[in-house]
Design a protein around this nucleic acid. Structure first.
Lengths: 141, 141
DNA sequence: CTACGTGCAAAGGCTTTGCGTGGGA
DNA sequence: TCCCACGCAAAGCCTTTGCACGTAG
């Protein structure tokens, strides 16, 4: 769990504390390796340690975002989802509007074209978001 | 105002009513030609006709979406924005994270590449979203 | 005349925070 | 010991809806 160490390092640096709750939450979050929302992670955590409260899960996720170990995503429009950040990796998403499955992909060519568009508009891109919504292999017939 | 006629046609077809409120709201919405949220449109409307309530603005926007005359967008993450749909036109967005300016663009090549990615994943794309966040010409130095 | 539309206020749904208590360092 | 962190409950923020009254057709 390299990333868990990164998190603990971050905490120490900031004078924050390593607690039982944070350990468990972060472990589960990193392991699950999906795009979870607070609710979902909260339920996973509850199963392992029923003491832990919703706000702790929430605050830990926010902390992960600050530490640059998690990214905040807004797919469905209303709900906030989080995903672990693996170093040097950027990807976009295919989202099934029937079953909710999320498939990740990466395409250098598209990114280059984006840069081109930006340049043409005298715009400096900091980050981007590309999502394709439709039906996955299982849901289209 | 071709689109206003389209809206009224839609209303008649569905047995819905053309009201003073709807006329004004839709006119302002189409004219403003920006990416407004309910709040913003509501304020514009208020200036012209202070009687009109927030829910009427809200419901009229929903109606426009149903009529396929407006598209719902979620940029900032939490707020819902609406933009008029011009026929046969698809575009994506450059969003300035400093001043909030939104610039539209269109790029066929990118769309083709998206289809390619989808095919490779046995995925059928229904719609997509591409947003580039960064600094616009005025905000970067 | 009837069903749809309107404004108001309140209910929802999720995110965020204040507070008193508990626990790392 | 001293802050930081925790759980709980409540506050915020938008979005959405129920209701009683008004009005287009």
């Amino acid at each position: 769990m390299k990333r868990l160490n990164d998190f603990e390092k971050y905490l120490s640096q900031k004078g924050l504390k390593i607690t039982r709750e944070r350990e468990k939450i972060v472990q589960l979050f990193l392991k699950s390796d999906k795009h979870l929302n607070v609710e979902e992670l909260y339920h996973k955590v509850k199963k392992i340690d029923p003491q832990i409260g919703y706000s702790t899960v929430y605050r830990t996720l926010r902390l992960l975002v600050k530490a640059n170990l998690a990214a905040e995503r807004h797919f469905g429009d209303r709900e906030t989802r989080f995903e672990p950040i693996r170093k040097n990796e950027h990807h976009d998403h295919l989202i099934c509007i029937k079953c909710g499955r999320i498939i990740e992909f990466e395409n250098k060519k598209i990114e280059e074209l984006q840069e081109e568009v930006a340049k043409r508009n005298d715009f400096e891109v900091v980050r981007h978001r590309l999502e394709l919504y439709g039906y996955c292999s299982r849901c289209k017939r």
